[in-house]
Design a protein around this nucleic acid. Structure first.
Lengths: 341, 341
DNA sequence: GTTGGCTGTCAAAGCGCTTTGAAATTTCTT
DNA sequence: AAGAAATTTCAAAGCGCTTTGACAGCCAAC
């Protein structure tokens, strides 16, 4: 059933039917009623591809999903997607997801944009000096970036959390508890948030005249195995750190396993603060020793970004171009005073 | 840059350029070369919406993502998606994901199908007597179902694991270890796999003249909280079960927390077998007491389903319509002989 | 030197929708 | 009652692509 058939059925022109359906004012209320009735009976649905072609609007947001045969699925991605979805469903928007090799992000994003079946783009996993920014700017299609790109002029629309502030505050707390030997368990080095979090730690330490040794920093994918490995390494250092900062509860999961295996007590021998993206599966309060965290909901960020993206496409009011969310520092049992030698 | 502009640039007709691009034989090799060169220089990409409209093919598979404001994101979904993506990226396919309220699945699926921007559908979270099957059959669009629908004629294309066999075998193992008091921690009652797993347990027990008490069965969302709650309930029963079967490592996570909190030892006081979807975050061997599991990779299922779906769209050879994968039973430390009273 | 079969190219139709600009109808003025 | 204004409807163009059917040009064959 298409528009032509429907209009013939009704004895109206395609124009009138189309207008009736799309809420244009210049159609008689009685006629509109009749059209709506027929739609209900026939189950007619406009073909989106045709609609897209005619209007240039598709009712969809595009995003790239990094993937590859060995590439581990990322719970952060899923959680963020849930946030996007929650908002999208309210506006009858859908997603076009382009799977792409992580090394092929730029090209994949361009393909997605030019393909003509998305109205707006969402970009995550930002890197320092991210090459995608230049491309996005040249595209004349709305987009919002999750995170920022360290080293690039901040003249693009983004939503980010204050990573530097979060880790600065967390470090300060540990300093106040008397710790002096720190380690940082971070995400991949090239990612923007890793850079900023490291800076936060370093600047808080610098205020006390402390530095973060190269050996006390790990940069790795945020998986529990990597957390385990990194922590094992830290624990073997001659001057074992007593205060650990951790970029994700996923990393913390492995890290804590290493602590337990070494027979150390979390919150006493070792203090740890992790960043909490509020993943339903990894509640910091559910750890055997509840985790002190810096918290910011990834899902909430997804909802907000969808709002901005969809709002922009629908031209519904202006949105702030750049948002920086503060994180909360929530103290639980995984942090304690520095142990006496 | 569109076809028209490109063809003008080359001094060729749109037809010729289109044919050159799509690998038709009736175009001079020299001409094709020239066209390809121009494409490279101009960065021309065909508009997918137009292509879809003209050909009826879009290079995309559609799926519905259950979501709602309170609805917790599901790691199983993410892991499966990773599998789909891994295969899709090889064929330059993308996904169209329609977020929808879980109560609105049928309508959402129909919208997605009729929208005209997908070539094939993937359906998951199958229920007993699933109403979506009838709709899918009427659609004349390829689809593959993950799981089956208990109570419906099995005349639809699916890929499923042998849930009944898995839980039958797991129960047998526990019976051999001398256990007689069982409990089952299952997924939502209406879902197909829950039904089959329960049947597997019940039939293994029946062979020994045992039954599964109503109070020893929980049906709930597969979250760690629910696992905790269910296990707490089991532990308070007058005749405390010693053998637990668990539909997911996510449930097991919470369940084990409850076991620990009760001061019981897993693998000694309580034996537990969980089904393992091979989630990267929840490796059964990484639990403090490694988990005995029935294993089948969700991601591998995603890859295979994408293969079948894309293969069907591309009309690349016939595919088996129905596949039933066996699971592996892997014994680790969470199972042991029934404790002496 | 015509016929016939290839090869390479093209103009035009069509996919299903929206939108423009004009026509037909109704309603309002004077 | 006639003309102006507002309302309702329509035919046709266009979005960017593929595909059908036709048409030149070329060579081998009779």
């Amino acid at each position: 059933m298409n528009l032509k058939q429907l209009s013939e059925l009704l004895g109206l022109s395609q124009t009138t039917v189309s207008r009736a359906l799309n809420g244009y004012p210049e159609v008689n209320e009685a006629t509109r009623e009749r059209v709506l009735q027929a739609v209900k009976e026939t189950g007619y649905r406009p073909n989106k591809a045709a609609q897209r072609l005619a209007t240039g609007k598709a009712g969809s947001i595009g995003l790239v999903m990094p993937t590859a045969p060995g590439h581990q699925s990322d719970v952060h991605f899923g959680e963020f997607l849930a946030g996007l979805g929650e908002e999208a469903v309210r506006h009858d928007f859908h997603f076009v997801i382009m799977p792409a090799d992580p090394d092929d992000e730029v090209a994949a994003l361009r393909r997605l944009a030019i393909s003509g079946n998305v109205d707006a783009l969402f970009v995550a996993y930002m890197r320092g000096h991210d090459p995608r920014l230049a491309m996005l700017k040249s595209l004349s299609m709305p987009y919002v970036v999750h995170g920022r790109s360290f080293g690039s002029e901040p003249d693009y629309p983004y939503l980010d959390i204050d990573n530097e502030g979060a880790f600065y505050d967390a470090t300060r707390l540990l300093l106040q508890l008397g710790h002096t030997r720190f380690a940082l368990m971070n995400g991949p080095m090239h990612l923007d948030f890793s850079i900023r979090r490291r800076n936060g730690v370093i600047s808080a330490l610098a205020e006390r005249g402390l530095t973060l040794d190269e050996g006390c920093m790990s940069h790795a994918l945020m998986t529990d195995e990597q957390g385990l490995l990194a922590m094992e390494h830290f624990l073997q250092l001659p001057e074992r750190p007593t205060a650990i900062l951790c970029s994700s509860t996923v990393l913390a999961l492995g890290a804590i396993r290493a602590v337990n295996q070494a027979g150390l007590r979390l919150g006493e021998d070792i203090s740890l603060i992790a960043h909490d993206d509020v993943l339903p599966l990894l509640k910091p309060e559910s750890f055997s020793v509840p985790l002190t965290t810096t918290r910011s909901s990834l899902r909430a960020a997804g909802v907000r970004i969808a709002q901005r993206l969809i709002g922009t496409v629908k031209q519904a009011g202006p949105f702030p171009d750049q948002e920086l969310w503060k994180t909360e520092l929530i103290v639980r049992a995984s942090t304690g005073p520095v142990p006496q030698e």
